[in-house]
């Protein structure tokens, strides 16, 4: 927080409500829309994205909630999207009227998750009206679980997008090739695979939430 922001908060007497862990029982409140389906079964262009979530001891994380937020495939940015923070134009994906670009999934007893969606298109970096720099197709992910006092944030890129990945400003900012590879889902057995390691040598790169 900058000094100016802090001063403004003081003037308003507002304190940003801090985060607390979602705890081990998060499924009670979130399972009502946690079927992992951003698109209904049989949607043209449907892809499956799955993987495991493991902790620093290599133990499967069986009580995590993953949330996915992404653009649609055929328009600049996808939608059902909310009042944008800063004048970003939200647009619906024409393939499915109920498309929101959001879904969530719980890990199972083996610490694995699955979600079904359509591959996002490339998105503008920042305000599309003033920026021509593009980001490679990606899905933003939030991870909630016992032991996480605030959510973890990461991004899923796609292994078959070598050219656009090579020009992506976020991936270019990750100097280490192994680390960069941990942000990229690989095509295997008819779907994309993206494993998440919360901690350790093979740790998934996470972003400031």
């Amino acid at each position: 927080m900058t000094t100016t922001e802090a001063q403004e908060e003081d003037l308003l007497g507002l304190v940003a409500t801090p985060s607390q862990t979602a705890g081990p029982y998060l499924s009670i409140g979130t399972q009502w829309n946690a079927n992992g389906r951003a698109v209904p079964e049989g949607t043209p262009g449907e892809i499956r994205l799955s993987g495991s979530v493991t902790d620093g001891a290599g133990v499967a994380v069986t009580d995590a909630l993953l949330e996915f937020w992404q653009a649609g495939p055929d328009v600049g940015f996808g939608a059902g999207s909310g009042p944008p923070g800063r004048g970003v134009q939200a647009a619906r994906w024409t393939g499915w009227t109920a498309w929101t670009g959001f879904t969530r999934a719980l890990t199972n007893a083996d610490g694995r998750y699955s979600m079904w969606t359509v591959k996002p298109g490339a998105t503008a970096l920042g305000d599309a009206a003033v920026s021509s720099e593009m980001e490679a197709p990606h899905i933003n992910v939030s991870i909630f679980a016992r032991g996480l006092l605030q959510r973890l944030v990461t991004r899923i890129y796609f292994g078959d997008e070598a050219e656009r990945n090579g020009a992506d400003p976020v991936l270019r900012g990750v100097a280490d090739a192994n680390e960069r590879a941990r942000l990229v889902a690989t095509w295997i057995d008819g779907g994309y695979r993206f494993d998440i390691r919360l901690q350790g040598e093979e740790e998934t790169p996470f972003f400031v939430p």
């Binding site: 902790d55 937020w69 909310g82 970003v88 970096l125 305000d127 991004r155 976020v170 350790g200």
Partner: peptide, 28 residues
């Protein structure tokens, strides 16, 4: 003091996301 954080907290520095289209929008 919250024991579960010992094996679940990330150990590497966090990266920063740009204020991109994905960050500036959200589900409704």
């Amino acid at each position: 003091d919250y024991r579960s954080t010992l094996t679940r907290a990330p150990s590497k520095p966090l990266l920063t996301l740009p204020a991109g289209a994905t960050e500036l929008s959200g589900p409704v």
